[in-house]
Computed example of a mutant assay.
Amino acid sequence: MLAGRVTTNSRCRMSAVTLTTRPDGVAVLTFDQSGSKANVLTRELWTEFGDALTSLSTRADVTGLVLASAKPGIFIAGADLKLLANAPVPNDPEVRAFIEQGLRVLEQLEALPFPTCAAIDGAALGGGLEVALACDCRICGTNPKVQLGLPEVKLGLIPGWGGTQRLPRVLGVSGMHQASTMLTTGQSLDYHGAVAHELVDVAVEPATLVTQAAYYVLRVDRKDRRARKFYPLSPPWERQRFKPLREPEPGAATEAVRVLYEGERLPLRQAIQLETEAFMQLAGSEESKRLIAEFFNRKGTRG
């Protein structure tokens, strides 16, 4: 179906990000964090990611961008939880700076003058899925390790990089209940579920994933897809239309539902501001710190 071999005609190497350019003008940005089994969204990775996007934004030779990972079975595992575990209290300035840094980079991604695609062949969880949601399209491999989810509620948190707002806009009006379920339970989707719920555009053989993504990204209507994300999901007169299937337990899940249903009637940027303030009240809370500590204990690591 797809013609052409992937070759490189320009290359820029950073410690965690590699940029290559294909003959068709599609740039491929590959995450490969040195010394780590997974790509984790640290302050340093956000900086390198942002610098790469800045360099791409002025290149007239680039026709599209594919985000990929060199880690087997992992796209991006999520945020640097050590920083969140050490937050002394809610609304900590260091945590806010970390969240705002990521939001700025994702705004850069959504402002690029060419279409973008996330090529996912493994876990895209939490912040990893939020990066993918900021792309114009998503393609995943038919890999049993594919997991797409926002599990922050299990850590006493909600997504902080736009996940509560981009997820429902990507899934659409008919996907509001699925978005609510994912946000309140931390449920992940495999590649079958991701395709069925239109969280990804298509699933392909892993060996051809990046090539297929480069082919697909050149055929995406980026203006239409971005418009659908930037505007409210439903107009003000329909603000009572959506209700969760069941009321969640108090805590992070309740906040996720509130932010989801209040944000869907706002423009994206305002909705994300709503999310940020809710996130900042949860990060550094005793409940969140306890759940993050339990997570580290299960993994055998220290926060």
Rank of each mutant, 00 (worst) to 15 (best):
Y215S: 12
A87W: 01
P115M: 07
V204F: 06
P93D: 05
I158R: 03
A119T: 06
P115Q: 05
N297H: 14
V66I: 02
G50N: 05
E287A: 15
D121G: 15
R222G: 04
M14Q: 13
V153A: 05
E275N: 07
T164R: 02
I74Q: 14
T63A: 15
T116H: 02
P72F: 08
A77L: 14
E107A: 14
A283L: 09
T18S: 14
V220P: 00
T20R: 09
V40G: 01
L125I: 10
A213H: 06
G78E: 01
V204Y: 06
P244S: 01
A213T: 02
A60E: 12
P244R: 00
A132L: 03
G284A: 10
L245Y: 00
K154Y: 00
I158A: 08
G172A: 04
T54K: 13
N297K: 15
L103G: 08
E205Y: 03
E48D: 07
S288I: 03
L268I: 05
I272S: 09
V153S: 01
T42L: 04
A134N: 11
A3D: 10
V131G: 02
S288A: 15
I139M: 13
L41I: 11
F98D: 08
D80C: 04
A196T: 07
D51S: 12
Q147T: 07
E238Q: 12
P72T: 12
